[in-house]
Nucleic acid binder design. Structure first.
Ligand code: MN
Ligand code: MN
Ligand code: ZN
Ligand code: ZN
Lengths: 143, 143
DNA sequence: ACCCGATTTGCAAATGCGTCGCAGGTGTTA
DNA sequence: TAACACCTGCGACGCATTTGCAAATCGGGT
């Protein structure tokens, strides 16, 4: 029996393939706590794959995020950032140095429970704190 | 004595003036629970001030937000949105209809306390939840 | 190993959203 | 009313990200 080419109604696209670009982009994030931007990932991957295109990096970061293999973070300040840590945690962005630091915390269970009880379906959430990181806070008071 | 024109070192700019554009933009937000985009505010204000420019709307929304008179919200999905409600509350954006709804909740005090204790200075935070709103959740299960 | 079609890539152009520079206009204070 | 700093409208610009397309590449089936 022939394998049913693309459905007509639903936009089901085939399974993602493992290209060297995709693999390298994913690898570039692993163990990196800096929450790099697409541009930064691009520069990094380019050392291994000099011909890779920035568009490919964007496409794959989006895809990996959709697959849940990485996390996409928008801080409301500058470009999106990417995180290999996919567990539930919040982020702190320093107003001064711009760095993004992990804040280990989840939402109070009761909150989402209350929302669900009101008819909402909570799929995800993003919490970003702003202020001064320990380094910059100290620097500015010593100023 | 002459009034000290602009400081040399510090970029202190004079006091904001009350122009009809600024007033109209602020007024357009009042009582509006829809969290409109700059574009939407622009269209609304244009009915009263047909010659207003979109750049002016952007400039004033930013300024009003800096003054703390309104709140700027970036959901990570589409353009920024503006809120006349400045008290601490979170937002829920529906994946289906895109609407943004208020969620009355603040951060657990203990969290920021722990952060401050570690040397952070928390100035603000933004919490955005994603999922399906009551209307869309019902619609999709009835589907 | 080879085929073949669906997926992916590199490239450039396009898009979306927001900001900037500048030449007048306007609000505010004296 | 005069003076001047702040504002506005306008278009050009900038940055981040997306998209169209032809060529390259994966990978399941043979
Ligand atoms: Mn993180
Ligand atoms: Mn709100
Ligand atoms: Zn810092
Ligand atoms: Zn909805």
């Amino acid at each position: 029996m022939r394998p049913q080419k693309a459905e007509k109604t639903d936009e089901v696209q085939g399974l993602p393939r493992i290209t060297k670009q995709r693999r390298a982009i994913f690898a570039a994030l692993q163990g990196d706590a800096s929450h790099p931007t697409a541009e930064e990932v691009y520069l990094r991957v380019k050392e291994e794959l000099p011909h890779i295109s920035l568009a490919t990096v964007y496409r794959n970061l989006k895809l990996l995020a959709r697959q849940g293999l990485i996390r996409e973070i928008s801080t409301g300040e500058g470009p999106n950032r990417y995180d290999f840590r996919t567990h539930e945690h919040a982020h702190f962005q320093c107003d001064r140095c711009g760095r993004i630091l992990d804040v280990e915390m989840g939402l109070p269970r009761e909150l989402t429970r209350d929302l669900e009880r009101t008819g909402f379906r909570v799929r995800s959430h993003e919490l970003v704190l702003h202020g001064l990181c320990p380094d910059c806070g100290a620097a500015s008071s010593a100023d």
